[in-house]
Simulated assay, not measured.
Amino acid sequence: MVRDEFAFRGRENSPPAANVPLSFTPPPMSKIPDGPEGASIRHGMAIFENTGTEAKPFVGNQLACRSCHLDAGRKADSAPMWAAWVSYPQYRAKNKKMNTMEDRLNGCFSYSMNAQGSPSGGPPPKGDPIYADLEAYFHWLASNAPTGAKLKGAGFLKLKLPQAGYDRDRGRAVYAQHCASCHGDDGQGRTDINGRQVFPPLWGPRSYNWGAGMAQLNNAAGFIKANMPLGAGNTLTDQQAWDAAAWIDSQERPKDPRQKGTVAENVVAFHSGEKTFYGKTVDGHLLGSGTEAPVQASRR
């Protein structure tokens, strides 16, 4: 009933010009309420920030939700969760059905968190309390946001492909200059002296798999342009962002969990029309074959 009333208020307050993005600011953390509702919201935020600890059975890499959704899911142009919450349910071409927020989170665990490599071998089952607490957090972040309206900063930045296209060799130089200091020359991220992941791995067995949205160059380029280097977003040129994305996303990573046959068959089934290196042969290696062997993350 609370959600229905919230949605009704949102529709009532939606602007008549639906194509004009609206500005929105999520509430400060100090406004999280007390009681059971607040406890659920805080636990949802803890899962979001420390996914590998709070949802350990379902995480098969060294990423957390916050790795791609910065500032605890609050930052614009980093697929903020306040914008995602008011966009669901929605139809997704990725799985060709109407998706609830729980469906979307299930997919995040499957692909971005590489749940196939987790202790459980898959994402949290439908109805797991993990989903309820994450949804409580997102619902609170979206307090008073208009349902169904376009919000400024929703999703990742849509970055036009430059005239020169994208090039992984140019991207290697961009990565070395602007990215390696945090993510390591080998792309395996950085850990602190206690072994805790400080900066996430960008490829290899500890990163997102080939089914993740970030494995698509347009998503990675938009994220890089708006947010990287960390704290200095929008300092790289569009060309540098696309080229860095090409270098990062032309490295091997865990298999797409949807793959049942060959990589070529999976390209046709799930990756047609995407800007991706999946299914391409790079340096004599067929990308999409997967990498599962654990590697030691770099340390600072």
Rank of each mutant, 00 (worst) to 15 (best):
R196N: 15
G261E: 04
D185Y: 07
P294L: 12
Q251M: 15
N194M: 07
N219Y: 08
A269C: 12
N99A: 10
V2Q: 14
S14T: 04
L287C: 06
H183L: 07
G204H: 04
A297K: 03
A297C: 08
V267D: 05
R172Q: 13
I130Q: 07
Y278K: 02
R253V: 01
S23H: 14
G117Y: 10
G290N: 07
A64D: 09
A39K: 09
D167C: 14
P15V: 12
G73M: 04
A173K: 15
E252H: 11
T281G: 09
K255W: 03
M29G: 12
H43R: 15
G284Y: 05
Q197V: 15
E292K: 11
S118F: 03
A245L: 04
G153S: 15
Q188A: 13
N234D: 15
P129Q: 08
E49L: 14
H178D: 12
A83Y: 01
G60Y: 01
Y278V: 01
L141W: 03
G273T: 10
G155L: 12
D167E: 13
G213T: 06
D133T: 14
D186G: 10
A72N: 12
S67F: 00
S120Y: 04
L161Y: 02
P162H: 03
T25H: 12
G127A: 11
T276K: 02
K150M: 06
T291S: 10
V295Y: 07
F138Q: 04
G171I: 00
S112F: 07
G35Q: 08
S207K: 01
F138V: 02
F270M: 03
G171E: 01
T51L: 04
Q197P: 06
L141V: 13
C65P: 01
N209A: 10
P129C: 09
F48Y: 06
T25V: 15
T281W: 06
Y111Q: 06
P125A: 11
A17Y: 09
G288M: 04
A269T: 08
W242R: 01
R11K: 10
M29D: 14
P205F: 03
A18V: 09
P21M: 14
C68Q: 00
A72Y: 11
C68A: 07
N19W: 05
W242E: 01
V59I: 11
A245I: 02
E135S: 15
G52E: 11
G35D: 10
G261W: 05
A226T: 02
A246I: 03
H178G: 08
F24R: 01
Y88L: 15
F6M: 15
S181V: 08
F270A: 13
P57V: 03
A93V: 12
P229K: 12
I32P: 03
H271T: 06
P57L: 06
A83N: 04
A64W: 01
T25L: 13
F109R: 00
G127K: 07
T291A: 12
M228L: 14
S120Q: 12
A55W: 01
P89Y: 03
H43Y: 12
A79I: 01
K260C: 09
F138P: 00
L63T: 02
G44W: 02
I47E: 02
D103H: 11
M101Y: 11
S207A: 15
P201F: 00
Q62L: 13
P15M: 05
A246E: 01
